[in-house]
Structure formats: structure tokens, C-alpha cells
Design a protein around this nucleic acid. Structure first.
Lengths: 349, 349
DNA sequence: TTGTAGGCGTTATCAA
DNA sequence: TTGATAACGCCTACAA
């Protein structure tokens, strides 16, 4: 029969009594500082293990200015890109003896409350998706004035802030070229709708390619919808009603592409037979689907984030640091020659 | 030009000086206790907002026994089931004014170190995948003796511990029946290999169904492989070499099924034309693929977890609590009538 | 209803 | 190399 007692951990005083050594020495032993006899250190550590002593983190946070903790704020984990980023950041953080605090929320009040908690002595700084800044610039401007280290992720650099983002324009442009070379002339774009969605590297590459080739930019082929795979699903629902549906669709991210593929297949069409599709991010599902995409390296991103943050801590007067991670186009089997019109009419009937 | 100062948050003393009220009153205002003038309370809260005061969490944790924090330990987030669980638990936790600390690791030393950290005054208790217990039962037995609240997830109840798991046997059995009714006679099983993998609800349903129908249980149709989609991928690599490949494959989870589907398609075969496939978990990808699966409700699971933990806190002498969440079979388009042998031979050549 | 003061478990600064 | 002691920022009796 199991017994349950009130959890009562040993404190530094218990260990001091047990070992006969002072608290100061114990502290030195645990933070393996210089100026301590290796023998006593060993003795202390061994005794700690025996009586189950572990330094109380709340107490040390009160004394220490470095918390060894970073707050990571993301909208959600429904997009595997975010999960993969969490994993990568976690790995890098651990290798640098720090921990991540994960906050998941899109709701402004919740995220601000979380940030205020964290910045009140729990974390050394913040890692956030850029969307949070857009929600409430004044709040983050103020935070920066207070000297709070923080780095924003994704999209375009925010003047005055540390930033890590991807260079997507080049890869996206190359993908457009690939499709054009395959013979596509009606290429659609699907992205998430948000303020400034027409100035992302992806969309500007899309439109620039049209301009360069003197193709007309047709609004019916540009779809800005909701976040996630539902956006892609609805996008195809729209495209398929056009008199002349696109023969290829380039998506703002993989999860949109996954939804789009689901939509295409639900209409009885095939990829790339009827429609070519591509995404951005190179999530695991993209590989499973054989989806052409643009790879962005999470590990490299994570390292860049931690580097920036560490330098910011070391020297708070540093000017804003910006890291742009390069991307690479991954060609898989979701792109092929455009269908003949007879083919799609057959499928639609 | 942005300026960067050392982050120096206001303390309770600053606020006391600013408002002219004592620290005690401020504390009472923030923990909205009885016996405080609503006007002063308002005044304090407003002043706090103005000078940016926020109680220091480390300091309060030293005083308080309830930390309002739960440690969640998961192997990784590569399986979206875990991400979805994290999201759901996060939602429920937030609605109960608690926070989750997420630890991601399979490595024994790392996870134990993390747990020791957390249990040293950072969390009210632990939420863990069952696999951690298997790694080091003695460690967790000892933790329980110390009165540490913890609940294990998935698989089978661990005697003496709080537990939340799924009832999968029934749904899995029904799925077998569905396949049999469609005409399948060679149904394969793919699951993750681990100690006790043959006593899961899924596999026992699989074997019981064979016994009940007096079908021989063929070892060549049972594949226990590595975790994740790679397991599924390799499973099909094995099955396809058989003189008579299975006409249907039931998988231990969706991510395995996703890998299996990838494998099947890479051999030029179709689902369910050549092979019927099913999974367990009902991850988002399953819906996108039209995969028949067994739905397990993350929200219900999360609520059950929090309920158990809260009751454990309230009364540490409670006997071990076990919550079994029911599941439901979701029929989609990945199951159909078995192929004729001519079909698969054609595809293979 | 409010103020006062002791203590929570550490680390850091002194002396010894 | 070690020990004593003063913070750290907060909560909570207890006193006013």
C-alpha cells in the first residue's frame, strides 16, 4: 500500500547539519566555484545525493541576475514547423545549460500577462514570433526601453529589435522558375492573410517573377486565407470554381500546402498530374507527401537566436542584431508538367 | 537609436514607496485577500501598472507551497499527438490558473536531472509519459515515497501510481471486425517495439480477434519497429517482400500509419486500392490523409489529468487514481475491399 | 483595515 | 579553504 506524505525537500541547512559544513561551502560546491577543497566538494555532493538535497530554484533566482531561462512564445503547435522549432531550440538551449519556458497563445491578454510574469525575474529574455509585436508595438517598445532582452522571429526585421528570420525570396523565385520551365503559365499563390502579407519574401518573389516575365498578375489566382491547413483547403475550393483553374499552386507554408493537397485530392484530382504544389518550411509531413518545399534549418535558426541573446546579455548596449538564415529549395515529386485542359474537365465531371 | 539598460524591475519596496502604503497591504492587494479596502486595492494595482511592478515569482515560490506549476515530460514533439496533447493540457492548465513546464527528452540522465530540478520547489507535481517509469522504476518509487504528486500517461496503469490512459481494445477490435467484413483475411500489425509491446490494448485486440475467428496468427505479418513514421516506412519495406503481402495493415499509431502510407505509395500502390491502412490517435495529418483511425480526446485526457493531480494535492493520502478515457473508431477512406492478387503483382512489376 | 517584522533557501562579501 | 552574515523579494502572523 503506497504511502503519501507532504513533499518536504531537504534544504541547504539540512545538508549543512548533515555534513557539518557551512552553507557557504555547500553553495560553492554546487556552483563548482574556485577555492574549494575537491574532497569536501565530493563529500558534499555525495551527501546531497544521499539525503536528496537539490538547490531550490526559486531561492537562487532571487539572488542571481542570470536566470538561465528563456521565455519562448509561440501562437500554437498545430503547425509542425513550430513543434520542430521548439525541439531544436530546446536542444540548443540545453547544450548551453539553459532552459526554455514555452508559452502557447494567440490571445493578446494571455500572452502579455505571460510576458509580464516571465520578465519579472523568471527569464533572461524573450523569444517570440513576430506576430506578437504587431499586436501591440507600444508594449514591446516599452519592454525594450526597460532593457529586456528579446528576439523576434520570422517575417521582416523590426527596426530597433534583435531579429532572426529566413531569406526566402531567392528560393521562392527559383521555384517559380522551375515551374515556368515545366511549362506552367497559370501559377496561383496561397498565403496566410495578415497585415503586410503582400510584402513577405514569398509573395514579393511571386509577383516579381510575374513582372520579370511580363505575365499579368491575376488577382483570382492570389488567395490570402486563414492560418493552417484550412487555408489551403479553402483555397482550392476557390480555385476549382474558376473557369480556368491554376495548373500550379505555390503556398506560403507547408501546412497550407497540405490542406491544399487534401482539397485537390478530395476533388478527385492528382498531384502533380492535375496540379503542381509547393510549400515552405520542409516539415516532416512534406517529406512524407513528397512535397516540393523550401527548407529552413531549425538548428541553425536556434543557434542564431541563442547567439544573439547571449551577446545581448553580455553587452546590453549592442546595436540591434539581425540574423538572416538562408534557405534551400527541395525538389520532390509534387511538381510536374502542367495538365492538358481536357484532363481537368474530365476530373471535374 | 534604441537604448539598452540593465533590466531592473520594480520591487514591492518601490511600490510601497510610490504608493505610501506598506508591503503587507500590497501583498494583500495582489493576492486579493479579504480584509483590504477595495479603494486602496485599486490604487495599488493601478500604481503597480504605472511603475511596472509585478510580483517576483521566485520570491513567492519560496513562501508558497502551491506553485501553480506542473512539470510535463514528453519524449519529443515529432509525433503530433504529443504536440496536440501539449496544446490541450496548456489550455486546461490555463483555465485553472496554472502553468505547464515542458521538458523534452528521452535521455535518462537529462530527464532525471530535469525532474530533480522541478521537484525542488518549482512544480506542484509531474505529468509524464509512461516510458519514463520503465526507464527507472526505483527512482519514481522513491519520488512517490517522498509524496511527490505525479501522474503517468498512456499504456497500462502502473500499480501504486496515479494514471491516465486510453481504452483502445474495444475500438481496435471493432476496426478488425470492419476489415474482416470488407473481406480482408491477411491483416498485418505494425507497432513500436518496446518491452511489453505485445500486451498493449491494440495488440491484444489484434491477436484476440485472430483467436476468436480461428485465424492463425502469422509472425511475418506482425512488425514491431522503431518509433515514428520511419517504423511504418520500414514495415512496408518488409511486408512487400513477402510472397503474399497483407491486404490490410493496422498500425499502433497514426504516425506509423503515415510512414506506412508513404512506403506504400513509394512502391506505386494505392490506398485503399492495394492496401487498407488504419492508425490510432486521430492526429491532424490523419484527417488530411483520409486515414481511418481511433480518436482519443486530448481535452478530456487533459481534464482527467488535472483533476487527478488536484485531488492528489488536496488529499495526499488518497489511494492511486486511475482514469481510463474511452476512444472511438473514425472510419475514413483508407479502408476498402481487399485487392485481387493480380492487382498487386501488376503494381510490383 | 493597515503596518511591522520574521523567515523562506539561496548566494556573495567579508573575515578568519 | 572555510565560516558567518547580509541581502534578495515576498508572504503572513501579529500587533496596532
Amino acid at each position: 500500500m503506497p504511502t503519501f506524505k507532504r513533499p518536504k525537500r531537504a534544504t541547504i541547512l539540512d545538508l549543512a547539519a548533515f555534513t557539518g559544513v557551512s552553507r557557504g561551502t555547500i553553495s560553492r560546491a554546487f556552483n563548482n566555484q574556485a577555492g574549494i577543497n575537491p574532497q569536501t566538494r565530493d563529500k558534499i555532493l555525495k551527501a546531497a545525493r544521499k539525503i536528496g538535497y537539490q538547490p531550490h530554484n526559486g531561492a537562487r533566482m532571487m539572488k542571481l541576475s542570470r536566470k538561465g531561462r528563456w521565455g519562448l512564445l509561440l501562437p500554437h503547435l498545430r503547425n509542425p514547423y513550430y513543434s520542430e522549432l521548439v525541439e531544436a531550440l530546446n536542444r540548443v538551449a540545453r547544450s548551453r545549460h539553459t532552459t526554455l519556458l514555452l508559452g502557447l497563445s494567440l490571445e493578446e491578454n494571455e500572452s502579455l500577462a505571460m510576458i509580464e510574469q516571465w520578465t519579472a525575474g523568471e527569464t533572461d529574455g524573450l523569444i517570440m514570433d513576430q506576430s506578437y509585436y504587431r499586436q501591440n508595438p507600444a508594449f514591446f517598445d516599452q519592454l525594450r526601453e526597460q532593457g529586456q532582452p528579446m528576439v523576434f522571429l520570422h517575417g521582416k526585421p523590426i527596426p530597433g529589435f534583435d531579429f532572426v528570420g529566413y531569406e526566402l525570396y531567392g528560393s521562392f523565385f527559383r521555384n517559380m522558375k522551375t515551374l515556368a520551365a515545366l511549362g506552367h503559365r497559370r501559377i496561383a499563390y496561397v498565403g496566410q492573410a495578415f497585415e503586410g502579407c503582400r510584402s513577405t519574401g514569398r509573395y514579393t518573389a511571386y509577383s516579381a517573377f510575374h513582372v520579370q516575365n511580363k505575365w499579368p498578375l491575376q488577382e483570382e489566382l492570389v488567395f490570402f486565407g486563414e492560418d493552417g491547413h484550412v487555408g489551403g483547403l479553402k483555397a482550392w475550393g476557390h480555385f476549382v470554381t474558376l473557369p480556368e483553374p491554376p495548373t500550379a499552386v505555390v503556398c506560403g507554408d507547408d501546412i497550407i500546402a497540405c490542406g491544399l493537397i487534401q482539397g485537390i485530392r478530395s476533388h478527385g484530382m492528382e498531384i502533380p498530374g492535375h496540379v503542381s504544389v509547393s510549400g515552405v518550411d520542409d516539415i516532416a509531413e512534406a517529406e512524407r507527401l513528397g512535397l516540393t518545399t523550401i527548407h529552413t534549418d531549425r538548428d541553425e535558426t536556434s543557434r542564431a537566436i541563442m547567439d544573439i541573446l547571449e551577446r545581448r546579455i553580455a553587452d546590453p548596449t549592442l546595436p540591434p542584431q539581425v540574423s538572416i538564415i538562408t534557405s534551400s529549395l527541395i525538389l520532390r515529386d509534387s511538381e510536374g508538367a502542367p495538365r492538358t485542359e481536357a484532363l481537368i474537365r474530365g476530373a471535374r465531371d
